[in-house]
Design a protein around this nucleic acid. Sequence first.
DNA 1: AACCCCCCCAACCGCCATCTG
DNA 2: ACAGATGGCGGTTGGGGGGGT
Length: 235
Amino acid sequence: MGRQPCCEKVGLKRGPWTMEEDSKLMSFILNNGIQCWRLVPKLAGIYIHILCLMRCGKSCRLRWINYLRPDLKRGAFSEEEEDMIIELHSRLGNRWSKIAAHLPGRTDNEIKNHWNTRIKKKLKLLGLDPITHNPINLPKSSTETEEINNHEKLDFQENISPDYQMLQKSEEALLICGSNQDKNDQSSSCIEMESSIMLQNIEPLGNISMEPFQINWMDNPFIWDGFSTFGESFP
DNA sequence: AACCCCCCCAACCGCCATCTG
DNA sequence: ACAGATGGCGGTTGGGGGGGT
């Protein structure tokens, strides 16, 4: 059995977040940091507007991580990012959070969505199984047909799937690296550590509600032009 | 213009791991 | 040591929007 729902569902709001809710949550986290997600909605409400933010802690956490975090990169994935996702997925599988740790500014949810809607199709078009990253429908070798099949494999690799060759090369490179997996784990931990440090380094310098304000982010201040243009000019 | 279909993605759900008293 | 609480993760869903008919 899993645990019970994180909070009492009665009276809690669900569905899309409003700008007001975003404002409350953002203000609270920037000013207080995150100690306990379950308390955030109540505290955020008391802190800003007396009214409670009628969301469960889990919903607040998700909204912050996937949408409000100031370090999020918005917009389409670049070719480089897509290639990186494919390469990481071939090694890590559906461990989206681990993959996201290697792509600064991207969330696990964003990567998961992008994988399911775009990259999966792209790989299929390239003749690759999105789960195993191996060619689809490649005949299995037997003693009698091995040579023919090898020719087919070569044809496939040379004529159909340059991306597959690229993947093979990156896998070879990883084998040569040997302890690369450990290195990746360490770098992943570093990224996680840096993220937590970054969270503590946020310094809101102005009024958060509807006016432009400045955030010091890893000693790189930027101006966030408020909630009026939310979702479009969010840095 | 109206309807339908498909795609995208934000948000939710359920489970597992870890923490805490 | 244990049970309940909490955080985090991956899978899934459903609503909105765009394109086609």
